[in-house]
Design a protein around this nucleic acid. Structure first.
Length: 496
RNA sequence: GCGCCUAUAACUCAACGGUAGAGUAGCGGGCUUUUAACCCGCAGGUUGUAGGUUCAAAUCCUACUGGGCGCACCA
């Protein structure tokens, strides 16, 4: 214990802790027998007051106002906050002196009858109280809250304590996740858990994290998607399946990217990507209705209308409308590269038309999409797990859903032709060999699984964090992840 | 990885080349229905770190560290 590094206030609190112990007060006590939550006291005020029955509540002291021989304070529990009132005459001078040693941040249990003050605030007239937990560090300011975003992310417990809207966001996040699960289970999808540690990191274009297993003496990858294992289950006869969980991608951080994030992937036999569009639309609109009671939202000061049906437009069409470029008129990779150069896009020398088309979309179109839109029929080169379109084998039955400029979902009619799949993996492997660390890895085991025969299948992945951002009106993914990834920092003296 | 912004008391913020300040929180005193309680007094700082310019640096310059935003990368 290096006491010199503590702030003066933290030192004073430690001294008070000693004083309390000298007075035989247990500073870290047992649970308090409560009769009500703070919100319940307010809800049942009339009966409590009429009957004159005592209520027992517990909570953290968040403010104190002393008046000589009487004192007011607010305590807060998970349900809300409540004012308490102590009079020396009522609790006795020993208890009253003890109360003087309590600080903002301490957790106490109180018992007393309930009344309304002159100004009309429901208040517990404390007849007895007990310290449950002594707090040794000062809380952030009550009025302005904790604003410094770095402190908020690094000390989320403080953020949650003093910024009530933050707690609301995470309660809503939890509800959304619960509703996703409920929505899918009710429709007969089986929730499963597949490995987080993979020998081959597949199912997406991304760099994986690498870890090591000592006993086996091998490196393992943290999963970058749940796709390939879920498809194995489809082959195995589990016809409607989903997994909701964390995936990991070793990429840059941004307001819409955290290295670990939550996805839900859903697979269903005898379905196609149109069915997955229906599912996406139904799921997101039903959750939105449940949370907001309307489909007309506001995101970052701008109106956002989720009313279905959401338009379903081909990628080439969207590019044409936004940039004026007609990709169907482009013949060959050379012409596409020339076009990219004309539009100020830097692309690799060996880029194909499909890759360039996709780049056009990402650079010039994605962020202009606002109300929900299904963008469909993506080039085969950037969609190695999706089935080719019958009318045009250069395209695939793949769609992405955009809401408020964010990619929320990605889905396909799954590729079921194991021989085509092998070719696609080979192409990806070639890209890996030429330095593309995000290209898909060859997964022989998965190919063998496919060779047994995979029924026609629709698959869907949804970025849960981004969905939560949209539904809670948060600008950064770090606002919807309790403990976002930050560079570690040495503990500084006096920091909370 | 690159660019811009940013770091002052436990918290929220001032001071923008000339003695580091306020509010909250804290400590001491007063006050028995207050409520951003109030009144009187006190304490609290290596201005992120390390250099440099200057008679003088929180302030200007350089580097580093953390963070934010944008770009790049990336579903």
């Amino acid at each position: 214990m290096v006491l010199e590094h503590l702030s003066d206030q933290a030192l004073i609190r430690r001294q008070k802790l000693g004083e309390l112990q000298q007075k035989d007060v247990e500073p870290y006590g047992q649970k308090y027998p409560v009769t009500h939550k703070t919100s319940e006291v307010i809800l049942h005020f009339r009966e409590l007051e009429e009957e004159g029955t005592a209520a027992s509540v517990y909570g953290r002291i968040i403010s104190k106002r002393g008046h000589g021989k009487a004192s007011f304070a607010h305590i807060e529990d998970g349900s809300g906050r409540l004012q308490i009132y102590l009079r020396e005459e009522q609790v006795g001078s020993d208890q009253y002196n003890l109360y003087q040693l309590l600080d903002i941040g301490d957790i106490i249990g109180v018992t007393g009858t309930v009344f309304k003050t002159r100004k009309g605030e429901i208040t517990v007239n404390v007849s007895s109280f007990r310290l449950l937990t002594k707090s040794l560090r000062p809380l952030p300011e009550k009025w302005h809250g904790l604003k410094d975003v770095e402190l908020r992310y690094r000390h989320r417990h403080l953020d949650l304590m003093v910024n009530p809207e933050v707690r609301e966001v995470f309660i809503t996040r939890s509800r959304i996740i619960h509703m996703i699960r409920e929505f899918l289970v009710q429709r007969g999808y089986l929730e499963v858990e597949t490995p987080v540690m993979h020998t081959v990191a597949g199912g997406a274009s991304a760099r994986p994290f690498i870890t090591h297993h000592n006993a086996l003496g091998i490196d393992l990858y943290l999963r970058i998607a749940t796709e390939l294992h879920l498809k194995r289950l489809i082959v195995g006869g589990i016809e409607k399946v989903f997994e909701l969980g964390r995936i990991f991608r070793n990429e840059g951080l941004s307001t819409s990217h955290n290295p670990e994030f939550t996805s839900v992937e859903i697979y269903e036999v005898n379905a196609d990507y149109e069915d997955m569009m229906d599912l996406t639309e139904e799921m997101i609109t039903s959750i939105t209705r449940e949370i907001h009671g309307t489909l007309k939202l506001n995101y970052q000061g701008r109106e956002l209308d989720l009313t279905p049906p959401w338009p379903r437009r081909e990628l080439s069409e969207v590019i044409r409308e936004i940039t004026g470029v007609e990709f169907s008129a482009v013949q060959g990779d050379d012409a596409a590269r020339k076009l990219a150069a004309e539009h100020g896009l830097e692309v690799d020398k060996d880029s194909t038309k499909g890759e360039i088309m996709y780049t056009f979309f990402e650079k010039y179109c994605e962020d202009k999409l606002w109300n929900p839109l299904f963008v469909k029929d993506y080039p085969v080169e950037v969609s190695p797990l999706a089935q080719r379109c019958r009318e045009n084998p250069q395209l695939t039955y793949r769609f992405e859903t955009f809401i408020a400029g964010k990619e929320i979902a990605n889905a396909f009619t799954e590729l079921t032709d194991s021989l085509d799949q092998r070719e696609r993996f080979v192409q990806q492997a070639e890209k890996r060999d030429s330095g593309d660390e995000e290209a898909h890895m060859m997964d022989e085991d998965f190919l063998v699984v496919m060779e047994y025969g995979m029924a026609p299948t629709g698959g869907l992945g949804i970025g849960v964090d981004r969905l939560v951002m949209v539904l809670t009106d948060r600008p950064s993914i770090r606002d919807v992840i309790l403990f976002p990834t930050l560079r570690p920092r040495e503990q500084q003296a006096g920091r909370p």
